[in-house]
Design a protein around this nucleic acid. Structure first.
Length: 287
DNA sequence: CAATCGTGGCG
DNA sequence: TCGCCAAGATT
């Protein structure tokens, strides 16, 4: 029911995102999915284009120094994703003959690849029928199927089953519906002020039928940022990324006044493989 | 399960 | 201005 409405809408209205172009390889899809984890499309686009030009295959990325990878990641945020993608590329090059797996279980075994990313790569990289459940899809299902104003806390198995029930039988067509569900949530069925008059599902939507009741369930508390370790780590990484070579400890000390927090964050960056200490005691991105 | 992990734009 | 958010994964 919903699928028949979403599919033609998506074919006609889908944004022309670079990783959706027909020449994009599964590797390109995988890279896009890593970058899009918690990061808006607009910020990902230029970085993805740069990465595809530099590292068109997993083996190419795997051969790059980690410092180059982290600099190319730029300010997308959550730089551990870059480390995991780098490691995933090495695993694909060495264990999968430089070919991104199409099997969900094999994908999930890669570093940084969870339930969502594995299914997204199978669906968008290989046109497989598999439920792809992200925050957008959960919101669309909560509204259109369950008549609720928003999605509550994730219920992994039930969410997968909900989406699976919406997908048509055929692989290729199911993959289009999966992409359409995400597009709908991203562009029309948005968290704030959904554009119901533009929605292909409006007249089949349980939430609209119910009079668009407000969401009453529990809200995920919004993460603070100012003053957190996340902010401090970000400032430290910015120094290391910008520097041409190793920097003195003084250069890192300058970004945050609380020495205890600063040292703890620097240690965590070393542990995460985002920074290293040189023999002469300075700090740099890992070679 | 809840906390943690960056960044910047927008209403 | 500032809270809220944007295609999650890991521990």
């Amino acid at each position: 029911m919903l699928a028949e409405l979403i599919s033609p809408w998506f074919r006609a209205q889908a944004r022309d995102l670079p990783w959706r172009r027909p020449e994009t390889t599964p590797w390109g899809v995988l890279v896009s999915e890593f970058m899009l984890q918690q990061t808006p499309v607009a910020r990902v686009e230029p970085v993805w284009l740069d990465w595809m030009a530099r590292w068109p295959a997993p083996s190419a990325l795997a051969a790059a120094p980690r410092a180059d990878v982290l600099r190319a990641w730029g300010k997308l945020g959550y730089p551990r994703r870059a480390v995991r993608l780098h490691d995933a590329a090495a695993a694909i090059a060495e264990q999968h003959a430089d070919t991104v797996p199409s099997d969900v279980d094999a994908l999930e075994a890669l570093p940084g690849v969870g339930s969502y990313t594995a299914r997204a790569v199978a669906a968008f990289g290989y046109a497989r029928r598999t439920p792809v459940v992200d925050t957008n899809v959960r919101r669309v299902v909560a509204r259109a199927v369950h008549g609720q104003g928003d999605a509550g806390p994730a219920r992994v198995k039930a969410d997968l089953a909900d989406v699976d029930a919406l997908l048509p039988v055929g692989d290729a067509e199911a993959a289009v519906v999966s992409a359409g569900l995400m597009e709908l949530g991203a562009v029309v069925c948005t968290a704030r002020s959904p554009r119901c008059p533009l929605c292909p599902v409006e007249h089949a939507c349980a939430w609209v039928t119910a009079g668009r009741p407000a969401y009453d369930g529990p809200r995920r508390p919004v993460q603070g940022f100012a003053g957190t370790d996340r902010q401090v780590r970000g400032k430290l990484m910015d120094v290391l990324r910008t520097a041409l070579g190793p920097v003195e400890r003084a250069a890192l000390d300058a970004v945050w006044s609380d020495a205890g927090q600063r040292d703890r964050c620097l240690d965590s960056l070393l542990v995460d493989g985002l920074a290293e200490q040189t023999d002469d005691g300075r700090f740099a991105l890992p070679a």
